[in-house]
Design a protein around this nucleic acid. Structure first.
Length: 918
DNA sequence: GGAGAACGGGG
DNA sequence: GTGTACGTTCTCC
């Protein structure tokens, strides 16, 4: 019985249900233990077994019958009457505590109220009158037969109780309501409920009893927790494993698994290789050989699992492991290990390389089919997804990205012919496999990607285990919100899934053209600031205008901060204040020369900003718990539109030219400010003028040249505060684009920003002309796409690349599903489009459809040249035209700006993810 | 113009 | 696991 105390950074949480001893037959016969996994301040891995904690939820004021039923229910441990605030009034609720988390959904299925309209017969006229007078109800019919429809199911229940309405209802109608109630807080992930109730942070000081025998756990320390306290935040060093698998697509077997484990503590790396003893499988193997090979592969997988458990990494990564490697481990282990007799095998159970004894688990999005994985106690981070998010590279392949980031690349193995390579160069394939694992690790750890540090940082203000913040971002908001709401005795509703489209940010109708000396300003934290400025919250929303201090442009009313300071503005203000603090600490650290600390505070302030901004998004999302989607998010955007419009109008009234603007930013230029110093001075002047209270308009950049084409499409040369290139909305397309297209686009950007639009037009026309005449390199016209199994397409014949793969097959080449297939378009006007495959070592004899390529080039380039009076058609006409007169005296846009500024408001759709606000 | 399919990436 | 969770581009109506 050794007591110990540790400071722990939490990484993940799970729970277990185990029988209690000596209480058989009692209702409370099990321990429900949350298990927290993390890393101590001394960088040791730890499993924390938390004290018994039972799930609970709230239901609205039930009937006596339902209350009795619950009291006697064999899975209900206790019920308790509680008073909580709901939609501005204090109401009666019942807190129901049940035996185990998995029972909560069962209670919901059985007892959740599904109806709200009450059908009543022969109701006394005076009751009906009172219901008619209630703004929450719509009444149809008359006293003989009336339908009473409330805005909300809670009010049906309340009405029944207030007027004892069952006496006026049919048996059938009573059944819909009698043993039912509205549920609250019954969809909070159980381990999160524990974290909120114990008010844990991402770091926690835990005291308890050391467990000698780690049993199923793989961590260095296993502790039975008795006490939790606060502790200073820290970021421990992690152990990161990156792995890769080589396998035969044709036969489905695994050839080898390699991994490298990097320990941040001392910078060491350990490599492991698990290699099959056998060569390529044949088509007609004897059952004996089959069995022998399967046994070998089972050994390989078991060795892999044992070694991961032994080395106990905190993070598992690799390249495209979500879609490939993890799926492979899962499928293969299931296939090789048939269910034990008399028991159904749990999928993934043999791949139990998590920090408990359970296997890997698979989660599939029902609508998109996107698969993600979970391994208990360890973070799972696909380096490919990190690359997509942070870099948005043109190509996303491991080799290309490694080359871009650090000039290294994959070994020279042809992975599309892995069976052949395995036969001829087995050792090199194993080396290649390990190299891939190393590259993925280096990518994940690269300063420009740095996903792990970012996750660790966001977890701090979110007050959650790190794994929680790598998934749905709504948990970050709820972590803060639910704790505040609980503390103030406000009921926590369940997400209704209700959707509501509303108007989003203000988008100024861009004045296209090439501009010089452009000043860019934006409001910092526009949406959070609006929440604070107008005290916007579900706790401050009122129907009565007379009570309100703030009425939003869409007509929602909120009381003053003095009357009731809303939970949401308080939360957001807290975030913005701690961001200020972090920024101050960053500055101080920088002055003290502590660059590591400065870097940390910089990441922290950024993480807090993300959280503050996501708060608005939460109220517009369909998974928002507070059912005010028609008021809160639309009010925030409407006030924001007013704010930025005021700035635009004021600038224009003084004769400045506003060129572009979006949500919280504005770009403008002045005839009288034609150098950096005067632009800066004007920018700061405007900044001071529009910064008041908690609204801050900031001078963000001065651009020497700025090209605007349309809403959200522009590029420019920033010269202050730093010289950089700004490109928005012109990101080159991906693999279905051809090299000639992206190369030409980049060159045109450069020419335009050199101030030579005439030359940009000439250059564009020239390239298009050459393309039309077929004077371009064939290799620059190749389009490459991967082709999956033909049967996976609904309509394979309509897809060019699928037809190309079929042609390849007809020509006698081997086709493997998933293979990347290069081709050149030979007839772009046919339906479906015709193309010929490009085969290595074989001369391409077909004639490319040069017109098709020229048209696609023109389509892209015209987006830029249009501003100089040269549209797509003119581009196609070639260079025999007159020279264009492009620059005016003050060098504003050569194309006349529209006289009437059309204001375009984009509709925002209800979000399913908060990503776009981050 | 909106809904839904396909891609990407892995061997 | 007290869940429902890829981002973007293209095709088709």
């Amino acid at each position: 019985m050794v007591q110990a105390t540790f400071d722990v950074r939490l990484l993940d949480s799970t729970y277990s249900v185990t029988p209690k001893k000596g209480v058989e037959g009692s209702k409370d016969r099990e321990d429900v233990n949350v298990r927290l996994y993390g890393k101590t301040r001394e960088n040791q891995s730890i499993t924390i077994i938390c004290p018994d904690f039972k799930p609970y939820f709230h239901i609205f004021w039930p009937t006596d019958a339902l209350r009795k039923k619950l009291e006697e229910h064999e899975d209900v441990l206790s019920i308790k009457e509680v008073k909580k605030e709901y939609k501005g009034s204090i109401e009666d609720f019942l807190e129901v505590r049940v035996r185990a988390p998995w029972l909560v959904p069962k209670f919901r299925t059985e007892f959740e109220l599904q109806h709200k309209t009450l059908v009543v017969k022969n109701i006394p006229e005076e009751i009906l009158e009172q219901v008619r007078a209630d703004p929450e109800f719509t009444v149809t019919g008359d006293a003989r037969l009336a339908r009473l429809t409330p805005t909300d199911r809670v009010y049906s229940q309340k009405l029944i109780r207030t007027y004892n309405l069952f006496q006026y209802m049919d048996k059938e109608e009573i059944e819909k309501f009698e043993l039912k109630s509205v549920f609250f807080a019954a969809d909070i992930v159980f381990t999160n409920r524990f974290i909120y109730d114990y008010d844990l942070d991402t770091c926690v000081r835990v005291t308890g009893e050391l467990v000698d025998d780690p049993g199923e756990y793989t961590t260095e320390i296993v502790l039975k927790a008795e006490k939790f306290e606060q502790c200073p935040i820290f970021t421990p060093k992690l152990k990161i494993m990156s792995f890769d698998i080589e396998s035969s697509i044709k036969y489905g077997n695994i050839y080898c698994i390699c991994f490298t484990v990097y320990n941040e503590v001392d910078g060491t790396k350990e490599d492991r290789q698990f290699v099959s003893k056998f060569g390529v499988r044949g088509d007609n193997m004897s059952p004996a050989e089959e069995a022998e090979r399967n046994e070998d592969e089972r050994r390989l997988l078991a060795d892999f699992v044992a070694e991961v458990r032994k080395l106990d990494p905190d993070v598992i990564t690799g390249y495209n492991i979500n879609n490939f490697d993890l799926q492979m481990l899962y499928d293969r282990s299931n296939a090789l290990n048939p269910p034990p007799e008399g028991r159904k095998a749990t999928a993934g159970e043999y791949m139990n390389f998590g920090r408990d004894s359970l296997g890997m688990s698979r989660r599939e999005n029902r609508t998109t089919g996107f698969v993600t994985w979970d391994i208990k106690g360890r973070l799972l981070q696909d380096a490919w997804l990190s690359v997509k998010k942070e870099l948005r590279p043109k190509r996303e392949g491991l080799g290309y990205v490694s080359q871009q980031l650090f000039g290294d690349t994959k070994d020279n193995i042809n992975s599309t012919r892995i069976d052949e390579e395995w036969t001829n160069r087995r050792d090199e394939v194993v080396k290649y496999c390990l190299k891939d694992a190393e590259l993925a690790l280096r990518i994940l750890m690269h300063p420009r990607i740095n996903t792990l540090n970012k996750l660790m940082d966001v977890a701090i203000p979110s007050r959650l285990p790190v794994k929680e913040v790598s998934g749905g971002q709504n948990r970050m908001i709820e972590s803060l919100m639910i704790r505040m709401v609980d503390r103030e005795n406000v009921i926590v509703p369940m997400a209704s899934g209700e959707t509501n489209d509303y108007e989003g940010g203000f988008v100024y109708d861009t004045k296209p053209g090439l501009w010089e000396w452009v000043i860019g300003l934006d409001f910092s934290s526009m949406y959070p600031s609006q929440i604070i400025k107008h005290n916007i919250c579900f706790t401050t929303l009122v129907k009565n205008k007379a009570e309100a201090a703030h009425e939003s442009p869409i007509g929602a009313c909120f009381v003053s901060k003095e009357k009731r300071y809303g939970i949401t503005p308080r939360m957001v203000e807290g975030l913005l204040n701690s961001r200020k603090e972090a920024k101050a600490l960053m500055k101080k650290a920088r002055q003290d020369g502590d660059m590591d600390a400065a870097d940390y505070y910089n990441r922290l302030q950024n993480a807090i900003k993300i959280l503050a901004n996501a708060t608005y998004g939460y109220f517009g999302a369909k998974f928002c718990r507070w059912p005010y989607s028609r008021y809160i998010a639309p009010s925030i955007t409407s006030w924001a539109r007013d704010e930025i419009r005021t700035v635009v109008a004021s600038l224009e009234s003084r004769g400045f030219t506003v060129i572009a603007g979006d949500t919280d930013s504005v770009f403008f230029t002045s005839k009288n400010h034609r150098d950096l110093d005067s632009c800066k001075m004007l920018g700061f002047q405007v900044q001071a003028e529009f910064s008041a209270g908690n609204m801050h308009l900031e001078l963000e950049k001065v651009m020497e040249r700025f090209f605007a084409h349309a809403k959200k499409r522009y590029f420019g040369k920033i010269i202050w505060p730093e010289e950089t290139l700004l490109v928005r909305g012109y990101e080159p397309r991906r693999t279905d684009s051809f090299d000639l297209q992206s190369e030409t686009m980049t060159q045109v950007f450069q020419i335009v920003l050199e101030g030579r639009p005439d030359e940009a037009v000439r250059f564009s026309k020239d390239i298009i002309d050459k393309t039309l005449k077929g004077k371009v390199d064939l290799s620059k016209l190749i389009i490459s796409k991967s082709v999956n199994d033909f049967s996976s397409y609904d309509n394979p014949d309509s897809l060019v690349h699928v037809n190309v793969a079929k042609r390849l097959q007809e020509m006698g080449y081997e086709f493997t599903p998933g293979m990347k297939t290069p081709f050149v378009i030979t007839n772009g006007s046919a339906q479906p489009i015709r193309a010929e495959p490009v085969i290595e070592g074989l001369e391409f004899t077909a004639r490319p459809d040069y017109r098709y390529y020229a048209e696609r080039l023109a389509m892209g380039l015209a987006r830029i040249t249009e501003a100089f009076g040269c549209d797509e058609r003119t581009l196609m006409q070639g260079n025999s035209q007159r020279t264009l007169d492009l620059f005016g005296e003050e060098k504003p846009a050569p194309v006349a700006a529209p006289l009437v500024q059309k204001e375009v408001v984009k509709k925002v759709k209800t979000m399913s993810t908060l990503d776009m606000f981050m």
